[in-house]
Design a protein around this nucleic acid. Structure first.
Lengths: 264, 264
DNA sequence: CAGTGGTCTAGACCACGGG
DNA sequence: CCGTGGTCTAGACCACTGG
């Protein structure tokens, strides 16, 4: 057992029952406490960051972090605000760009309309408890919500605007999620470093169960901010708990600690 | 621009068009080539590993790595062998344990049968090109395939056994995928270090589109070995390309390359 | 055995954040 | 300004892999 893994073990245990945002001991403190040099202390804190248990901010310090569960499933409304709020955190979304441009062919095909039709190209960044967590582009036709720019000044949630102004009921028609190393543009939008793990979630929403497409999105989501869970197909007990098949017991929303039975 | 990020940039560029399994310069070589100390060279190679572009093996060296695309979607057969083979790589699966035990209540509920019914609890490890990539537990009733232990001696693919011996046609009934930091038991099964990024994929397969459940699985998959893509809902162009909505240009799936030369 | 990556020390300079 | 994390050097020992 190396020194740093022992430090990781101890700190991870201590941090398990601490509210998110709590300050963690600095590198110097850890080094002194465990009687190791700065390199070993730094390695331990870096490992905690890699495990997404803490965030480290240059000049600021190290802080515990919470990961919000984001359940992507058929029938779940594709709404950032609602999902984050349901997790007990505070969502926020800011508009970086809202341009009226002719619809590119690929997106027009998604939306089932003509290329060149006037559309809004929306670039937005979303936060959880004030920390950047998502970023990306959303497309919708001008015809659907001509007053979008004005509406966005009073309401952050695109889902709410679509419901209240455009009078549609957005539902997931198609979604694709994958985990990538954030490229330069995405890491800039997410406020993280290039190469950090991030989700790429492309999605198409339609109006109701069988209505026409209304919204096409491609968003990057920080893996250390959001625990994306994709669910596919109907399931009797598909509410919010993890099925325990003998390997992993149910995990609470807040990491209560993975319980496992050893196979082999 | 720090020295190590510059080294990362250069090496990532050079490694982009190199077949998987190729040996990469050692820490000492990199340090000498770029005129930096070992720490900087090591940081650069470590960053490449974090980006899942290379694998580093103590005592062995650093090697380029390929990531296999694993598409999870309704209608796709839940078969490791087939998926890996379709990606042009060589699958292999070994049985770690095949015990006949009474079905636990939670799994019995999944399989739509009685708790306590005789069942096989299968623990298997799967490889891609000889490198461990997946590990986990699978459950199926003894009544379905009484001759499972014998069949597994001649056929690695559980999907094939279910088709040829049990005469069922496995289809995805329900699947849940999420990205986690591998706990100790999973990292041991996957041959990686605890805390490494890994997928947890729970799945229930049934016989045909409307048949009864036949197989319940919970498997861990190494994120650096497999690029899991979960797709939800029907889509006209849902074949295998990435939709480009103006943020992200279509990024090549995996650096197309022939079969890897194994490291070791 | 030599070469490789994994860990660690002691020390240094820098960039950044907050009082 | 001080304390924080980010980077880097030079050097050391260890664990592991390979021939």
């Amino acid at each position: 057992m190396t020194k740093s893994t022992e430090i990781v073990r101890v700190l991870a245990e201590e941090l398990a029952n601490v509210p998110p945002g709590t300050r963690v001991a600095s590198e110097a403190d850890v080094g002194q406490r465990f009687g190791v040099g700065r390199a070993a202390a730094r390695a331990a804190l870096g490992e905690l960051e890699r495990r997404m248990l803490v965030s480290r901010i240059q000049g600021g310090g190290t802080f515990t972090r919470r990961r919000v569960d984001y359940l992507v499933a058929p029938g779940r409304a594709p709404s950032w605000s609602r999902t984050v709020r349901e997790a007990g955190a505070t969502p926020r979304t800011v508009v970086l760009a809202c341009d009226e441009v002719p619809l590119p062919p690929s997106v027009a095909h998604e939306l089932g309309t003509q290329a060149g039709e006037p559309a809004f190209r929306l670039v937005r960044r979303s936060f959880i408890d004030g920390m950047p967590a998502a970023w990306g582009v959303e497309w919708l036709t001008v015809a659907l919500v001509p007053e979008l720019p004005a509406a966005l000044r009073h309401e952050e949630s695109l889902d709410a605007i679509l419901r209240d102004v455009a009078r549609v009921r957005p539902e997931r028609a198609w979604t694709r999620a994958s985990m990538e190393s954030a490229p330069d543009d995405a890491s800039a939008g997410l406020g993280c470093r290039p190469g950090d793990p991030a989700w790429l979630i492309a999605s198409l929403a339609r109006d109701g169960a069988d209505g026409p497409p209304v919204l096409s999105t491609e968003r990057w989501v920080r893996a250390d901010a959001v625990r994306v869970i994709v669910e596919l197909g109907a399931h009797e007990t598909a509410q919010h708990e993890t099925a325990a098949h003998g390997v992993t017991a149910a995990r609470g929303a807040t990491p209560a600690g993975p319980v496992s039975s050893r196979p082999t």
